[in-house]
C-alpha cells in the first residue's frame, strides 16, 4: 500500500467508467501527477543563471574571465556575484549555468580540499588535473542518476610547471583546449579567442592576454542580453592564483545615435 496521497492520483472519474468496469489499460492513469509526486524534485531547468565563462592559455599559465551577473530569467537579478572560484593553490574554476548548483559545487570542493590538504597535509596536493577529474566524475555521476548539476564549468590551473585548461558540463562531457568558452561565449567569443591564441600560446604575455579577454567580454556584453559590463579576471601562474576584484568594462554606445530605422527614432 502506498501511503503517500500525492501518489494516489485522481479519484475515479464518474463521467466515464462509472462502475469501474473498464479494463486496466484504458482506465485513467493514476501515475505520478507532477514533479512532486515521487517526493523528489530534480533539476529540470536552471533558475538563477550565470552566462559565459572564457579562458585561455598564455605564456605564464592560464587566464579565466566571467562577468558578475546572475540572471533570473531575463531579469538581471544579482549584479555583483563571483563566478570564479579558487580551489586550492593551483586551480581556478568558473561556472555558467545554475548558480545554486554552482554554490553547492563550491562547498563540495572546499570540503574536499579541507580533507585533502589540511587533514592529510602530506605534500600531495590536488592540482587542476585532479580537480577536473573529480568534477567530471561528480557531474557524470549526477547525470547518470538523471539529477544533473546544471552547469558548464571551466577548470584551469598550473602545477609543477604544467598548465591545464579543461571543460566539464552537466552531461559529464569533458574536453581540453588552449581556448575555452561556455554558453553563449562558445558561439561569440570562442572564434575570436581561437583566432588570437591558437598556435601562439607561448608568445602571449599577460598584457596581451588581458587585452584579448576584455575584447571578448566586450563583444559578449554588446551581443549577449544576459551579460553585464562588470567582470572579473583570474590568472593562475607559477606564482599562484590571483582573482581580480570586479572591474568595469569600457563600452562605447555613441554609434547608437546614428542608427536610423528602428527604435525610438522615426526618421
Amino acid at each position: 500500500m502506498d501511503h503517500f496521497p500525492t501518489n494516489w492520483g485522481r479519484p475515479r472519474n464518474d463521467a466515464f467508467d462509472a462502475y469501474n468496469t473498464y479494463p486496466f489499460h484504458v482506465r485513467p492513469d493514476n501515475g505520478p501527477r507532477d514533479a512532486f509526486a515521487d517526493n523528489v524534485q530534480r533539476t529540470q531547468q536552471p533558475i538563477v543563471t550565470g552566462t559565459s565563462v572564457l579562458a585561455l592559455k598564455y605564456k605564464d599559465g592560464i587566464m579565466m574571465a566571467a562577468d558578475c551577473l546572475a540572471s533570473y530569467g531575463s531579469l538581471a537579478r544579482f549584479k555583483d556575484i563571483q563566478r570564479l572560484h579558487e580551489v586550492g593553490k593551483f586551480t581556478v574554476i568558473g561556472a555558467s549555468g545554475d548558480m545554486s548548483d554552482y554554490q553547492y559545487l563550491q562547498t563540495t570542493l572546499d570540503e574536499l580540499l579541507i580533507s585533502e590538504e589540511i587533514t592529510a597535509a602530506d605534500g600531495h596536493s590536488l592540482g587542476p588535473v585532479e580537480i577536473h577529474e573529480y568534477l567530471s566524475r561528480l557531474m557524470y555521476g549526477r547525470r547518470s542518476r538523471l539529477n544533473p548539476l546544471w552547469n558548464s564549468i571551466l577548470v584551469g590551473g598550473v602545477k609543477d610547471g604544467k598548465s591545464f585548461l579543461a571543460y566539464v558540463d552537466l552531461l559529464g562531457t569533458t574536453y581540453s583546449s588552449s581556448t575555452l568558452a561556455t554558453g553563449y561565449g562558445a558561439y561569440i567569443a570562442q572564434p575570436l579567442l581561437r583566432k588570437a591564441v591558437e598556435g601562439r600560446e607561448m608568445d602571449i604575455d599577460e598584457n596581451e592576454a588581458r587585452k584579448i579577454m576584455t575584447d571578448c567580454l566586450r563583444v559578449l556584453f554588446y551581443r549577449d542580453a544576459r551579460s553585464l559590463n562588470k567582470y572579473q579576471i583570474a590568472t593562475v601562474t607559477d606564482s599562484g592564483v590571483a582573482i581580480s576584484p570586479s572591474m568595469e568594462l569600457g563600452t562605447q554606445w555613441g554609434f547608437a545615435e546614428g542608427i536610423r530605422g528602428y527604435g525610438a527614432q522615426t526618421q
Partner: peptide
Amino acid sequence: MPGTPSIQRPTQHQFNPYSDNG
C-alpha cells in the same frame, strides 16, 4: 476503447542525459 476520453499527463521538460559528439 472508442469514446473514452484520453487522459494525458502534463508533458514535462525532460533532462536528456545523452549527446552526440561526432
